[in-house]
Simulated assay, not measured.
Amino acid sequence: MSGTGAALSLDCPQTLSTECWKVPGYRYVSYDNSAATPCGVSAINGTAAGICERPNVRVTSWVINGKNVIADPFTDGWDLCGVPFLSDLAATLNTWDPFAGGWTTAFSDACAYFLRSRALPPTGTKYGVLTAVDIDTKETITFTPVDTVVADTYYRRITEVDCDGTTTTRWTNDAGATVPAPDPAQIVECTVQVTPGARVTPTQRVRPRIARFTGTASSTNLDRIPADVQSMTLTVLAGAVRVRAAGSGATNSSGGPTTYGDDVTVPAGITLTWAVDGDSNDLALDGGLIFTGTAAGADFLVHWTEHIYTDAD
């Protein structure tokens, strides 16, 4: 057989392959005890209200995936407002959650302190209302969660060959617009189902604080601050300052309940510091301190660091 050879003409550029990639999304579920907030709704007898210090409650139901996971109601207790209350509530959720949601205290500007799950897939386990009855007041207490969802982000990697044989690769978003290449450490193929790559616990940060006191003023019992205090420093500028070690719940005026006998007067020119190393074993100082000027001429500084949990990156 004979014939005439002819050059083939290709459309240029020509697509060699189109691949689908994604940055996996995630979801957080949150509960709040501060009435109606972006992080959840707490209610008393059906009316949105803040809920604090409930030492004697009977938890009757927690609806997950449309079913009550608490088949046998139980008696529990939740402590003061802020972090103590939320820590108790988190313990309740972690005890009864069959899906191991990993509930921890978090912080945000919109909600202050609240409860948040670990990172979950964008869709899946549906957490619902937690209901309890205050045995002392007979009130019905409910917590309704809020989902914060970040969907999967899709990309296309398109490999093309030009008329001169040059091969190039470009990326487009889900709408087809050309975009910079995504971080290769964040993407997986679209067919891959993975556990969310978001952090298991909220971002942990240490926030510095400082306050100045004069005369016979007293500092707040630092054990009552709604955060984990990792360090505190007293600097006496003038006069003298009385330092008392008091247990949780003590106030400036009463000092009680006091669980320690420490009660000393510190003169001017002295600086004292208390601190932990901040690792997972020694996260916060245990027990509070109250600082009080002993006379009108007293002048002192108290500064401390707070370990907080926040959704911010």
Rank of each mutant, 00 (worst) to 15 (best):
W21F: 10
T168Q: 14
V200H: 01
T142W: 08
I210N: 00
N252Q: 14
P267Q: 08
V133W: 12
T60P: 00
L86E: 08
P226M: 10
I270G: 04
G247T: 10
L285Q: 11
D263F: 02
I141Q: 14
T195V: 10
A6G: 10
D134V: 09
D79F: 09
L80I: 05
R224L: 05
T159K: 15
R58S: 04
A275G: 01
A110W: 03
L120C: 02
T259Y: 02
D88W: 06
A43S: 13
D162N: 13
D109P: 01
V29T: 09
T305L: 02
R54W: 01
Y260V: 14
P121G: 03
Q204M: 12
G261H: 04
Y154H: 13
S2H: 12
A36R: 15
A49I: 06
R244P: 01
L283Q: 12
T104K: 08
A43L: 08
A185L: 11
A91F: 01
Y260F: 13
V241S: 04
N68R: 02
T92V: 11
R209V: 00
T310V: 06
G293M: 01
T191L: 04
D72G: 04
T125K: 00
A36H: 11
H307Q: 13
N45G: 12
T92F: 07
V150S: 13
C163V: 08
V236E: 01
D286W: 02
Y28N: 11
E139Y: 12
